[in-house]
Simulated scan of single mutants.
Amino acid sequence: MEAWVAWLLVAALLGLAELLTLTLALGLLAVAALAAGATGALGFPPVAQAAVFALGSVAGIVIVRPIARRHIRQPPLLRSGTAALVGREAYTLTEVTRAGGRARIGGEEWTARPYDPDLVIPAGSTTDVLAIDGATALLYPVAGPAVPD
């Protein structure tokens, strides 16, 4: 078997191992093995192939992996799902008490409770959505009278 074919097999095994472990290291080693295989396919000697693999591996682990890990850890730029509702304005459709109520948030009707359990928010009030607890919006009045319990 020619050396470049062995490099391709090593690259395939490392790629498969990366899919199973998700370490970001084995995939970079697979890319380095692919580069070494390409070097062998171009007719370079095994010493050059090993050097390409070593340089590619070091460059991937030392340079590319930290950058990739930093990008993976960043929070998403666009909030979605219930996280997108936090901070939005809501309009109460019924009186909202510790026992419950209804509010309209962005065109959808939600069950609601006051964020402060001692408040009673009257129907027709404008509120802020401070949190989502399951399928219930926790609201706090923007301005105006809030009647204590």
Rank of each mutant, 00 (worst) to 15 (best):
W7M: 02
P46R: 04
A146K: 05
G56T: 06
L77C: 04
F53W: 09
A83K: 09
A131G: 07
I105Y: 11
G134N: 08
L130S: 04
L138G: 06
P76T: 13
A112K: 02
V47Y: 04
A84G: 12
G100T: 09
L28R: 02
A41L: 13
L9Y: 15
V62F: 14
Y140T: 13
I132Q: 10
V142P: 00
S125P: 06
Q49W: 00
G101M: 08
V10C: 04
A112I: 08
A112W: 03
G56N: 08
R88E: 15
A68T: 11
V86F: 13
T94E: 08
L16V: 13
A146W: 09
E108V: 00
S125W: 02
I132R: 03
I67D: 04
V86G: 08
V52I: 10
T92K: 04
V58R: 07
T23A: 11
G56P: 07
P46T: 14
V31W: 14
E109T: 15
G81R: 07
I67M: 12
A112L: 05
R104N: 14
L13T: 02
V58A: 15
I67N: 03
R69D: 01
I121K: 03
W4S: 07
I61S: 00
V52L: 09
V47I: 06
L19Q: 12
P122T: 08
A38S: 08
L22W: 14
R98I: 14
V142A: 13
G27T: 03
Q49G: 08
L139Y: 03
P122A: 14
I63L: 15
V147L: 11
V31S: 08
A11H: 02
P148M: 10
Y140D: 15
A33N: 01
P145D: 07
A54E: 01
L20P: 00
P114V: 01
Q49Y: 00
W7T: 00
A99K: 13
R104F: 03
L26N: 03
L42T: 09
G124W: 05
I121E: 09
L139F: 05
R102S: 14
A59M: 10
A17I: 01
L85I: 11
A12N: 05
L14N: 03
L130M: 14
G87F: 13
V129L: 12
S80Q: 12
A33Q: 00
G100R: 03
T94G: 09
T127M: 02
P114F: 02
D116L: 06
W7V: 01
R65C: 06
L138A: 05
T82E: 13
H71W: 14
I72E: 12
H71F: 10
D149M: 11
P114H: 02
Y91P: 00
A135V: 15
G107A: 10
T82I: 09
G134F: 11
T126P: 01
L130Y: 11
S125E: 04
A123M: 11
V129G: 10
A90D: 08
A68W: 13
P148A: 12
T126Q: 05
G27K: 00
P122Y: 09
F53P: 01
E89K: 03
Y140S: 15
T23P: 05
V58G: 04
R79I: 13
I72D: 06
E18G: 11
Q49L: 00
L139D: 01
L119N: 05
V96N: 00
A51C: 09
P122C: 11
A32P: 05
G27W: 01
D128E: 12
A90P: 07
W110N: 06
